[in-house]
Design a protein around this nucleic acid. Structure first.
Lengths: 147, 147
DNA sequence: ACAGGTTGGTCAAGCAGCTTGACCATAGAG
DNA sequence: CTCTATGGTCAAGCTGCTTGACCAACCTGT
């Protein structure tokens, strides 16, 4: 593979990621939630069993202070709440509220919608292959919100 | 494909894009260029035959004012220069300097290096398939630098 | 038991990079 | 030869991040 092809791959990857991010966020906003993409990335970390502010910062690739500000905003908008951590009195466990779960489901719907558009171009099977390939590349790297 | 799988695909795509972006930029910086990722995205638009500030803004997904500021920074650092536009006296054609071309080549090398790491995991053929699939999804969408 | 260092979280200030709004010069249509 | 649209810059403002300082709670070793 020549050098300029590698750069083209990068550009295609970034364009696809940007396209998808915008489609999902647009879909969520259209369903009546006041959020930005970074919030969605936070939800995917919080959904399973909650997380601390510091863990959230690692997941998003930002400082814990920035993560704390983001949580503050989500609390204000009613999507999450801070609870005392069951095992560490210093920490707080951030968990989704019912509204937060609704928003997460809306994001899943919007994501499925966007991916269906891809499936129409590539075919269902190809999309599955694409997902499998991608998941082997950066298994649990941080989702860096800005560049 | 279930909804949560679509969201997982999105996450994988974003993580891969973030990973790749950082690797490329790290590689370019290590080769002695003082740039951030947005500059690289600008270069890919400027490389073929130059571009106007407005065109650059469209490519990057920002306002022309923001693009103008970015160009100003690149001029200051010696990577590009503003020339009178051959067909429109209002416009200016932004073109790469020799140093700009060096930086572009460095980015291509760094990108090839990063993609080689992927090929070690997926196999050369799979990477080619990946690129082809991606290029069919968002052919020339803007590279949105922030979210 | 407790001193010393580590870790989770917040407060506060600063800043980089973007946006909006205003403006000028040139282009292009009628 | 006006009238509107377009390319570009200047200026001001804002958002979301960073760095630095700090407190409270944890966790060692002694």
């Amino acid at each position: 593979m020549h050098n300029h092809e590698a750069l083209a791959l990068s550009a295609a990857l970034l364009a696809a990621a940007g396209d998808l991010t915008q489609r999902i966020n647009d879909g969520v906003v259209a369903r009546g939630f006041e959020v930005r993409p970074a919030h969605g990335f936070a939800f995917t970390r919080l959904a399973p069993a909650g997380a601390t502010v510091t863990e959230l910062g690692v997941h998003l690739g930002v400082t814990k202070q920035a993560a704390s500000q983001l949580v503050e905003e989500l609390v204000r908008k009613g999507y999450v709440e801070r609870r005392p951590h069951p095992e560490d009195a210093r920490a707080r466990l951030i968990v989704l509220t019912e509204r937060g779960w609704e928003c997460t489901r809306a994001a899943e719907e919007a994501a499925a919608e966007a991916v269906r558009a891809w499936a129409a171009v590539l075919g269902e099977a190809e999309v599955r292959v694409l997902r499998d390939q991608l998941s082997r590349i950066a298994p649990d790297g941080p989702v860096r919100p800005t560049w």
